[in-house]
């Protein structure tokens, strides 16, 4: 299989301009098959901007992004999603006045995924049993933790070849964060490649095998999560002390 020889996603020297300012100057990273990779860094480091640019939701000002071996420049989020790059956005971005079930169904965005809706639904509900219970409820009436679970499940419905998770623990109570990460652990073990953007470094490092540290729109460090855990660079990126 050729896919085992090349990365799923490779990002080289990505630059992104955002309204007036450049949020990302020089970000590079790779994701290999079956791998879970985290992007770490304080708020404003350029993590979300990088993901959205890779997805095609923001214009790329420089650098190169390859997904499954193809250059992605100029592709729309729709086109990227069709190719299997599924983004679970920061703040969940659900459809609050649609039911849980409808939200899930819409996640099956490709023809292939739609054909397998039933099986995917079973899988999602097994991963997050609460969603099965609440399936006829409007998504807007769920609690924050349930909404996050729904967002992840909606992403899985699209049969991702790469799942990009943006701040899945944002605003959640610690107990709920544990639940969400338990489910993410199962997703990783099932072999789905993951990019995780997370402020809660601890969980991210436990879940992923490798990580990159971003600061001021640049990749400043990379390594295995074990290496990063002991890194002073990481600490200073978050706490601003040297």
């Amino acid at each position: 299989m050729s896919t085992t020889l090349s990365p799923i996603l490779s990002v080289e020297r990505l630059r992104v301009k955002y309204d007036l300012f450049e949020a990302v100057f020089d970000v590079s990273f790779e994701v290999w098959p079956g791998e879970a990779v985290c992007l770490l860094g304080s708020n404003g480091a350029g993590k979300t901007t990088s993901l959205r640019a890779i997805l095609g939701a923001l214009p790329i000002a420089g650098g190169r992004v390859c997904f499954l071996g193809d250059d992605t420049s100029g592709k729309s989020p729709g086109a990227m999603t069709m190719r299997g790059m599924i983004y679970v956005p920061e703040g969940r971005e659900l459809f609050p006045s649609l039911t849980v079930l409808e939200n899930l169904e819409l996640g099956a965005i490709t023809r292939e995924a739609r054909a397998r809706t039933r099986a995917s639904l079973e899988l999602a509900c097994e991963l997050f049993p609460i969603l099965a219970e609440r399936r006829m409820q409007l998504a807007g009436t769920l609690s924050g933790g349930q909404q996050q679970m729904l967002a992840i499940a909606r992403g899985l419905m699209g049969l991702p070849r790469l799942l990009m998770l943006d701040e899945p623990s944002l605003g959640l109570a610690p107990v709920v964060v544990e639940q969400v990460y338990a489910a993410l652990g199962r997703i990783v073990r099932s072999g789905t490649p993951i990019i995780l953007v997370e402020q809660h470094v601890h969980q991210a490092l436990e879940l992923c095998q490798r990580g990159y540290v971003l600061e001021g729109g640049r990749t400043v460090q990379q390594g295995s999560t074990a290496e990063l855990a002991g890194s002073d660079r990481l600490r200073s990126a978050y706490l601003g002390v040297n």
Binding site: P77, G78, Y87, F95, P96, S97
Partner: peptide, 20 residues
């Protein structure tokens, strides 16, 4: 139809999850 309702409900969310 659901996709149409979804993009009425949350246009940005719809874009980010790949709806055209």
């Amino acid at each position: 139809g659901k996709a149409i309702r979804a993009s009425a409900d949350n246009r940005r969310g719809a874009t980010l999850m790949g709806l055209d």
